[in-house]
Amino acid sequence: MAEHKEFELRLYIAGETQRSKTALENLKRYCEENVKDRYSIEIIDLLANPQLAEGDQILAVPTLVRRVPVPIRKIIGDLSNEERVLVGLDLRERS
């Protein structure tokens, strides 16, 4: 995923838990529906790379970080609340 996309997303998880699976599935679905072909998703497993938690100041997992476009946004949770995710990613106006 070296090429630059309009939406560069990072999903931090801690192991292959049900919650992280749910989060990833939800995220992919929203992206396909809203920003198809304009996004990239990088998955970081903190159990494998604990040192990476510091960089994006990750406390909660799962955490979705929108790195591009700026400003950086963070959405935590299993992303089951579609409305909030889309608002958080600035894909929908806050109602």
């Binding site: 919650r19 903190l46 955490t63 935590i76 609340n81």
Partner: peptide, 17 residues
């Protein structure tokens, strides 16, 4: 201000840090 909560989560990230 930059955190939106959307669903279930835990603080495993903090524990890992």
């Amino acid at each position: 201000s930059e955190i939106e909560e959307a669903g279930e989560y835990d603080l495993e990230g903090l524990f890992i840090r």
